[in-house]
Amino acid sequence: MPYPTTGPATWFVTGASLGLGLELVKQLLARGDNVAATTRSTARLTAALESIDTSRLLALPVNLADEQEVVDAVAAATDRFGAIDVVVNNAGYGLLGAVEEISDTEVRELFDVQVFGAWNLLRAVLPGMRVRRSGHVINVSSILGLTAFPGWGAYCAAKYALEGLTQSLAGEVADAEIRVNLIEPGYLRTDFLRASLRLPGRTADGYAAIREMTDAHLAMPGTQLGDPAKAATAIITVAETGTAPLHQILGSDSYGLATARVQSLTRDIETGRPLAVSTDITETAG
């Protein structure tokens, strides 16, 4: 069984100094688990944990887009705690603007964190997990990895990419007894919309609806439906039980949006069926 049945588990969590990542680290340390936590600011992380026993914490300043830094961080965690049992790719931020408005640099920076950073960590941890035939990868996506809203094109594109690589990964490592899950939360009552939301450097005319939606999101903090503490507990449950589906939705808002997306996609598939099947090669009788 990938999750340890005796003794503390060792977790490797990215994006650990804010929001869901921070709440997860707090709960893991309170349980007595070992935690290697990456952040761009170890000072911010340690300040947020000042009232918690951090003797089982290894805080690692890591630029996830730098593959060597990620490799070194995994090596440091392994040296400190031994084998890594659970990896949580949680790091990320929002980028809110029309597709036309997002610059090449802005979208590449987003993918560096949410896609290539996660990929760097997977390359670093999977060899050891395969040798041990044990381990669990949990990639934190979003309901916006299953559906899409205007103005969230860059963020959705990154989450869709994470979803695709995760689904492929699950099939690739199943024979090695490595578990893989996607976590797809809705809106959580964290500081994400304050501290982790970026806007494009320029705006274009003609997108008044996106400006209104942006203002609504900036005013949303404190009203989100999801409880980050419960979401962190749910992630721990996913790791402990090993029974969650590949796509684990969190939040009734996420559940409603996912259900609507499945229904919409089904309608599209059925509506497009006549044209779809018309493109098959028709074999003629000899």
Rank of each mutant, 00 (worst) to 15 (best):
T5M: 07
T5S: 14
T6L: 06
W11E: 03
F12Q: 08
A30L: 13
R31T: 06
T39S: 14
T42Q: 08
E50T: 14
D53T: 06
T54I: 13
L60H: 12
D66R: 12
V71L: 13
D72F: 04
A75M: 07
T78M: 02
V86D: 03
A91W: 08
I102Q: 06
T105K: 15
V107E: 13
L110D: 04
L110M: 12
F111R: 01
G117M: 11
N120T: 09
G128T: 04
H136W: 09
V140D: 08
G153S: 15
G153W: 02
G153C: 05
C156S: 15
A157E: 10
A158Y: 05
E163R: 15
E163I: 05
Q167K: 13
E172V: 00
V173W: 04
V180P: 06
I183A: 07
E184I: 02
E184W: 05
E184K: 00
D191Q: 13
S196M: 13
L199M: 08
R211D: 15
M213A: 14
D215F: 02
A216D: 09
P221L: 02
G226M: 09
D227L: 04
A229I: 11
I235C: 05
H247N: 11
H247M: 04
Q248N: 07
I249N: 03
G251E: 09
S254I: 07
A258E: 07
R261G: 02
L265N: 01
R273S: 06
S278F: 06
T279N: 08
D280K: 06
